Simulated scan of single mutants.
Amino acid sequence: MTLGPGTEVEAALESAASTRRSGRGAVRWLSTRLAGLLFVLWAAATLTFFAIRLIPGDPAQAILGGPGSQASAAALAQARAEYGLDQPLILQYLGQLGRYVTGDFGTSYSLHESVVQAIGQQLGGTLVLAVASLAVAWVLALAVAVFSVRAGRAAWAVGNGLEIVSAAVPHFWLATVLILLFSSTLGWLPAINVPGPVGLVLPVVTLAVPLAGFLGQVMRESLLNALHSPFVLSARARGESEVGVLVRHALRHAALPAISLSGWAFGSLVSGAVVVETIFARPGIGRTLLRAVQERDVPLVSGIVLVVALAYCLVTVASEVLDRVADPRLAESPR
Results as ranks from 00 to 15, higher is better:
residue 222 S to G: 06
residue 308 V to E: 00
residue 33 R to K: 14
residue 95 G to F: 10
residue 334 P to T: 09
residue 45 A to H: 04
residue 310 L to N: 05
residue 262 S to R: 13
residue 123 L to V: 12
residue 168 A to T: 07
residue 77 A to L: 04
residue 234 S to C: 03
residue 301 V to E: 03
residue 265 A to M: 11
residue 258 A to R: 09
residue 37 L to A: 08
residue 173 W to I: 13
residue 84 G to D: 05
residue 207 L to H: 05
residue 229 S to N: 00
residue 329 R to H: 11
residue 318 A to H: 00
residue 227 L to W: 05
residue 87 Q to T: 05
residue 209 V to K: 14
residue 213 G to R: 05
residue 332 E to K: 12
residue 273 A to W: 05
residue 167 A to M: 14
residue 37 L to E: 02
residue 62 A to P: 05
residue 251 L to D: 01
residue 149 V to W: 03
residue 319 S to I: 08
residue 4 G to Y: 12
residue 176 T to W: 13
residue 32 T to A: 13
residue 22 S to A: 14
residue 225 N to S: 13
residue 305 V to D: 01
residue 325 V to F: 12
residue 139 V to N: 06
residue 309 A to R: 01
residue 197 P to E: 08
residue 247 V to I: 11
residue 189 L to P: 00
residue 9 V to C: 01
residue 266 F to R: 04
residue 1 M to E: 13
residue 68 G to P: 06
residue 44 A to D: 02
residue 228 H to G: 13
residue 37 L to T: 04
residue 57 G to D: 03
residue 328 P to K: 04
residue 133 S to Y: 02
residue 132 A to G: 10
residue 201 V to I: 15
residue 252 R to N: 01
residue 25 G to W: 12
residue 96 Q to G: 11
residue 288 T to H: 07
residue 151 A to N: 09
residue 52 I to T: 15
residue 226 A to Q: 05
residue 101 V to P: 03
residue 134 L to I: 14
residue 276 V to Q: 04
residue 296 R to V: 01
residue 324 R to K: 05
residue 169 V to R: 00
residue 332 E to V: 09
residue 20 R to E: 10
residue 26 A to Y: 08
residue 259 I to W: 03
residue 297 D to Q: 12
residue 207 L to W: 09
residue 265 A to P: 02
residue 153 R to S: 15
residue 293 V to K: 04
residue 325 V to P: 01
residue 304 I to Q: 03
residue 18 S to D: 03
residue 14 E to Y: 09
residue 312 Y to P: 01
residue 67 P to N: 10
residue 202 L to T: 11
residue 62 A to E: 03
residue 147 F to I: 07
residue 267 G to A: 02
residue 70 Q to C: 06
residue 268 S to F: 14
residue 91 L to V: 07
residue 115 V to R: 10
residue 59 P to R: 11
residue 153 R to C: 09
residue 220 R to N: 00
residue 125 G to M: 04
residue 42 W to L: 14
residue 10 E to D: 14
residue 117 Q to Y: 08
residue 220 R to Q: 01
residue 53 R to I: 09
residue 181 L to M: 13
residue 276 V to I: 12
